[in-house]
Design a protein around this nucleic acid. Structure first.
Length: 473
RNA sequence: GGCGGCGUAGCCAAGUGGUAAGGCAGAAGACUGCAAAUCUUCCAUUCGUCCGUUCGAAUCGGAUCGCCGCCUCCA
């Protein structure tokens, strides 16, 4: 079975066929870098990363573009609200660009820990102001946008297809639109392509309409097509971006004459102990907090254990279940490695499992199904392991894990120790105790041997009146 | 109010017409000096509820209850 992906635009699974044979262009909406990366930031990148790995494994050449929003947009779509970056900059007493830079790296450090490979291109909104102005000008020229005192708005009434992605009727939108105060838009549905900068606004650029900054949706239309072409294969984002963000992206890009994305992939939200994360209710976890408790690759594995279009729940219990499950897979892999006499690959055995694995991923990236296949394989391999399997068997089994748990899922590097430092601490306590017993028996040959061996490993023992203590050099 | 989604064992979670994957937890057994790991077996006559379509439904249709998302920044 060839790859099928669910397309939000058509609301069904479709056979994947790239615009250009053998090549795939993927664009994903990245974060606005103005605060610590949290759990919600992890899902998309892990899914896109897994998709990219799978496409490459399937023989495609992939270009993955993920933007970073480092231009301070307003906190709401009306003309009110403060710029998120600016607000944070005041709070931390830093330049807005320092804020963007700081959280940009915090984000990518966290992603690296999660085993997410870097996108091929990471365009920043601030680096594409010129292109955004150009598309805005083009839209005005074509009659799809208008200027009002330094602001430029997209004219939704001029674009009939508006609502094609989210399935919203424009009439409903007018009724559903909340009351807006003092807007100079012709129609409440219209959205900003360019905003006039008020005097206190620090992040500002020169434009044909005076100093200002780009609207929030335009950067994605511009940067995706700049690096992937006017028509490209896959556009991804969180479910909550379907409207208005993606709807607006499509309208702008198509109005400007671009065919834009073919397949729209949207991943579902994450819940914490069964409840949606919400910054406003302080019900969320930063990745840093989570990493203190679980190996980042356990987080990755846990996310892969649910389908990307389903809500994924994070709780202490479910996370521990994932950690245990992953440990079981990795223990078997490590045992194979211990018994292996070669690092040569052999992907010819286990064809039934390989086929089942591929079918699962080809079915709209059904990672939980694929993981189930690996558990099935693991049971068989463990059984064989108990009865001296051949070197060829071990090599084949290792290759299976390296291909799927390693190359595709990217979790082979997870630590199987629950808390490495506690383990180390306990271990040394044990050795120190043994050495102390030897010293009491005046068996200094043994006690010195222990100290020397540890020194050779880079651990220094220091004898004090209160006992021995250890240090890692 | 509009649009959309979900409800599968103690927990997590696949399955979208052919008679309930997988993981965690739990129970029993094998192995072991004892553990651990591993293996074996057990653990949902049933998929929120009711009605209907069908030879056959967790899967389709209708009703109903409950939960949730988007429509406002959010992954």
């Amino acid at each position: 079975m060839a790859l099928q992906l669910y397309n939000t635009k058509t609301r069904q699974k479709e056979l994947f066929k790239p615009v250009v044979e053998g090549r795939v262009g993927i664009y994903s909406c990245g974060p606005t870098v103005y605060s610590d990366p949290h759990l919600g930031h992890a899902r998309g990148p892990i899914i896109m990363d897994t998709l990219k790995r799978w496409l490459e494994h399937s023989g495609y050449k992939v270009r993955f573009v993920m933007n970073v929003t480092d231009v301070g947009h307003l906190t709401d779509d009306a003309d009110a609200g403060e710029d998120k970056l600016l607000k944070r900059a005041k709070l931390e007493q830093l330049e807005p660009m320092e804020i963007a830079e700081k959280y940009f790296w915090a984000y990518f450090d966290a992603m690296a820990a999660l085993g997410v490979r870097r996108p091929d291109i990471v365009p920043k909104a601030s680096g594409h102001i010129t292109e955004q102005i150009e598309m805005t000008q083009e839209l005005i020229k074509l009659g799809y946008a208008y200027e009002r005192e330094g602001n430029v708005y997209f004219d939704v009434s001029a674009w009939e297809a508006y609502g094609e992605l989210s399935g919203r009727k424009t009439d409903d939108l007018i009724e559903g639109t909340r009351v807006e105060v003092r807007s100079d838009k012709d129609d409440p549905r219209d959205f900003a392509l360019w905003k006039r900068a008020e005097p206190e606004h620090i992040m500002r650029w020169k434009s044909p309409w005076g100093e200002g900054f780009p609207g929030w949706h335009i950067e994605c239309s511009v940067m995706s097509t700049k690096y992937l072409g006017d028509e490209f294969d896959i556009h991804g984002g969180g479910l909550d971006l379907i409207f208005p963000h993606h709807e607006c992206e499509i309208a702008q890009a198509k109005a400007a004459g671009k065919d834009f994305a073919r397949t729209w992939m949207h991943w579902n939200m994450i819940t914490l102990e069964g409840e949606k994360m919400a910054k406003s209710k302080n019900h969320f976890v930063t990745l840093e907090e989570l990493f203190a408790q679980f190996d980042p690759l356990v987080i990755r594995f846990h996310l892969l254990r649910s389908h990307y279009r389903s809500v994924s729940d994070f709780s202490q219990e479910s996370l521990e279940a994932s950690a245990q499950g992953l440990k079981r897979l990795l223990d078997t892999y490590h045992e194979l490695k211990r018994r292996s006499t070669t690092d040569a690959r052999d992907d010819s055995p286990f064809q039934a499992y390989r086929t089942a694995f591929a079918e699962a991923l080809n079915d709209d990236l059904n990672t939980p199904q694929a993981i189930a296949v690996l558990f099935d394989a693991t049971r068989e391999i463990n059984t064989q392991l108990a009865q001296q399997p051949s070197a060829a068997y071990i090599r084949g089994a290792m290759t299976l894990y390296e291909d799927y748990l390693g190359e595709i899922f990217g979790v082979l590097g997870a630590s199987t120790a629950d808390a490495k430092e506690d383990v180390l601490d306990g271990l040394l306590e044990l050795l120190i105790g043994q050495r102390q017993e030897a010293r009491l028996k005046r068996d200094f040959q043994t006690s010195d041997a222990i100290r020397d061996r540890l020194a050779g490993l880079g651990i220094t023992l220091e004898d004090t009146a209160e006992g021995s203590r250890w240090k890692l050099n």
